[in-house]
């Protein structure tokens, strides 16, 4: 089996998106905030966050904040809950949460909760359990979980539970590993994991491992490195991770590396990107791969960062 070429991944992340005219650079423009979260968290897991200038990152993030309290994907963009969590997570990585007006950000998140307990992504009202997770994770990091209606939020998430034990984006939506991570993560943060049928969901999740060792997100779909995060973190949160073969999954992720130029792709021999590089490294961290900082499966931040948030005061 190969090894993790961490130094090359660090170099890849630091140089990412420099290629002119690349499709990725075009699509990254508006979600630069997510890109920053993926890249910087991966760097931190590999112990190289200090290669980045904290002040530059922090001042750029703050320039993406909108007067509503939410953050945009880039300077001058409209706020969205997706970018707001990434912004808060990156500030947490640098231990700089003190630069934000916590109540202002919280007010933005609170304003997006609907009557049924669900959350919209922005003022236009798209509803999805992804946004429930984001809202809950975000206000929890800000120590303001009491400002949202947790009971209703949990009730909505449970209404998205399916007969196979999984969760979809809205009630009745097909179970999907990405949505499952969001729902399980939100339930973990709110202390509601008892509402999950852990054995049933655990069985569905471990059925996601295919012969190559990789994980897919739904039955009969191809494996993808990003599911090493979504599936694995969910299995850890419900305490069933020993049901899959860790060795085979590690091998699958390592096989997805570009061992020359760095970066990790969705499947072996595909093109690498920063999104899959993050999920690959984060997955290996969950698998306790040597040399990587442990990552928290619910907050998707390094464990030392989460400890700092909750135990420093």
């Amino acid at each position: 089996m190969g090894e993790l070429v961490a130094d090359k991944h660090v170099r890849y992340i630091l140089s990412v998106e420099k290629k002119k005219d690349s499709f990725e650079s075009v699509v990254m423009e508006h979600l630069r905030m997510n890109g920053a979260y993926w890249g910087l968290t991966a760097l931190d897991i590999m112990g190289k966050l200090d290669t980045v200038d904290t002040n530059e990152v922090v001042s750029w993030i703050m320039s993406c904040q909108h007067e509503s309290g939410g953050f945009g994907g880039n300077v001058g963009h409209d706020p969205h809950i997706l970018y707001t969590l990434s912004a808060v997570q990156v500030l947490a990585l640098f231990n700089k949460l003190d630069v934000v007006d916590v109540d202002k950000v919280t007010n933005y998140i609170v304003s997006l909760q609907n009557e049924d307990g669900s959350f919209s992504g922005d003022i236009w009202g798209e509803v999805d359990t992804r946004f429930s997770y984001i809202a809950i994770c975000c206000v929890s990091i800000l120590h303001r979980l009491d400002r949202i209606n947790v009971e209703k939020a949990v009730k909505y998430i449970i209404s998205c539970k399916n007969m196979d034990g999984g969760f979809g984006c809205t009630p009745g939506g097909e179970s999907h590993a990405g949505q499952i991570f969001c729902c399980v993560g939100a339930l973990a943060i709110t202390g509601s994991l008892d509402l999950i049928d852990k054995d049933l969901l655990g069985w569905w999740l471990c059925e996601r491992q295919v012969k190559s060792g990789g994980l897919n997100g739904r039955p009969e779909k191809l494996p993808d490195v990003c599911y090493s995060w979504w599936v694995l973190s969910s299995l850890i949160m419900i305490d069933r991770v020993h049901w899959i073969s860790k060795e085979k999954l590690i091998k699958f992720i390592l096989d997805c590396q570009d061992t020359e130029k760095g970066g990790i792709s969705d499947r072996p021999d595909d093109a690498v990107d920063v999104f899959h590089t993050y999920f690959g490294v984060a997955g290996l961290s969950l698998l306790e791969y040597p040399g990587l900082k442990p990552i928290d499966p619910a907050y998707a931040l390094p464990v030392d960062v989460v400890d700092q948030i909750f135990f420093s005061k």
Partner: peptide
Amino acid sequence: PQDDGPNPVVPINYSEEFSEVMDYFR
């Protein structure tokens, strides 16, 4: 033009066409 900050964390070079459209959009 897009203000990506002084020394971007995730530096992006946009295609000319894309940059122009977005500059006018802004």
